[in-house]
Nucleic acid binder design. Structure first.
Lengths: 265, 265
DNA sequence: TCTCTCGTGTACTATATCGTACATAAAGAG
DNA sequence: CTCTTTATGTACGATATAGTACACGAGAGA
């Protein structure tokens, strides 16, 4: 039983990877590695949270749906965190439609199992709380960004945040889909995407967007990306940096090209 | 029930009021009841969180400041919760400027004391986690609202949310201030406020806005208000309703009778 | 191969909001 | 009471995005 840590199936998920051997052993029997599909809906708006999901190179969107039929993405979940957080916080229903955007597998577990383990304290609790803070920061930055920045800037930010989570420069996404995420017209996305492509930052064909100039895209994106990225790096690196990098990022960071989005080792 | 509980200084704050006698006794020596001032800044952006604050009929704004000098409110804290939450979640610095909007006192306590008590579990932990979820919902709704709704609708929502927290129809606010909260021009606020006043929903003089028709204002506001209000009611009523009211606007309950909620069927 | 569907490109008007500037009125200071 | 500051009212061109509509072409299926 002491070789259990070595027996863990490999995953990028930072929550799972942070667990102590003891914690992992308790949870392992309930953990199930599944494949996910593009567009798959984990929870409908207001649906009971039965399972929580730990993405592995999968990107999940939290979408707020308005009564006029429009929709806006209000948060993103990747390997840095988990879908189904409200359950841990004491709410059994998901306030947002939770949708798999880019799929490459995930682990899942009955929500109540996670909550029990969470209540024990320990590394899991610490990691989940820290993740909660990072999601809160992400969402609040999206709130500000939606008010302050142009469609093109937001599109750039969105593509970057997606790539950070799916770890691939190739994103299988249509303009139609992006328009739902950004809360703009489909035609608006096309125009913005054309602008980014004209700058040589991205290249796309039907239903597939490729980031061709990552650093350029970072410069093009609004400051919101750098803010959220600093927090994302804090959480994914496992460093308890206490949010020191959250703000006060004056563009100097990506000007010098300091972005290593791959730190898996 | 016990004599101890009767000895608590009265406050509207739901976190403090939820505590068990035992918990309260442990925290009481560190608790300090202070007065707050309009415009007082509890934490600057990125500032160390030394104390956490439990508002009592005080309304506190979480403000995201953009590099272009603009600012947008991304969250609100009232007697339903607490300022300084990031500290509990493991981050020692406040990612947002945290400002007293409408003042009527608060209790405060060294942040580390609260964190220690939080780790013990118990009612405090449960209440704070539940509150965290409600703040997350608030912020995400603001994100969607900022993308989808007009200045007038958002102004109406903002005024309502403020009144819910300061429990007074009289809000000491200038258009200039509101423009920072809503992230629009000052002139834009004036126009929107004129529209609301023309409808007889509010009445204002220099630096003072009065809600004259609460129900009308609720109808005027976008759906976002009702969503957040349902969650707010859940949290403030102490019911562990587990978010059932978050999106189902159909089940309003009016906890402490601030107003009647007309049902928009 | 042909056809049909879907993703994308583009155009045009309408509207909300911006940026800016200036006028006016109310409250406070002396 | 007068002066000064501050909050509010208003205007006007500029701009971003909405709403809508239609054409084009790639790719999938028959």
């Amino acid at each position: 039983m002491s070789v259990n840590e070595n027996a863990r199936p490999p995953t990028e998920n930072r929550i799972l990877n942070a667990l102590s051997g003891e914690e992992y052993e308790r949870l392992a029997p309930h953990l199930e590695f599944i494949s996910t599909n593009h567009g798959q809906i984990l929870y409908q708006t207001n649906q009971e949270i039965d399972y929580v999901y730990f993405p592995d190179k999968t990107m999940i969107s939290l979408v707020s749906q308005m009564s006029d039929g429009g929709s806006v993405e209000v948060g993103i979940v990747g390997f840095e965190g988990m879908a189904g957080l409200p359950f841990v916080l004491g709410v059994e229903k998901s306030p947002h439609e939770t949708m798999v955007q880019i799929h490459d597998g995930a682990a899942r577990m009955p929500a109540h199992v996670l909550r029990e383990e969470f209540k024990r304290g320990g590394i899991l609790q610490e990691a989940l709380l820290r993740y909660t803070q990072s999601l809160l920061l992400l969402t609040s930055q999206v709130a500000a960004c939606n008010r302050a920045h142009s469609v093109e800037e937001r599109l750039a930010r969105w593509l970057l945040m997606s790539q950070d989570r799916c770890l691939s420069p190739d994103l299988p996404l249509t303009h139609e889909f992006l328009s739902m995420m950004l809360g703009v017209r489909r035609a608006g996305v096309t125009v913005a995407a054309l602008a980014l492509q004209a700058e040589g930052l991205i290249h796309y064909t039907r239903g597939r967007i490729q980031i061709t100039n990552r650093e350029g895209l970072e410069e093009y994106a609004c400051e919101c990306y750098a803010m959220v990225k600093a927090e994302f790096d804090c959480v994914t690196s496992g460093t308890e940096n206490a949010g020191g990098g959250q703000n006060g990022i004056d563009k100097q960071k990506h000007a010098t090209g300091v972005h290593e989005h791959s730190d898996p080792d």
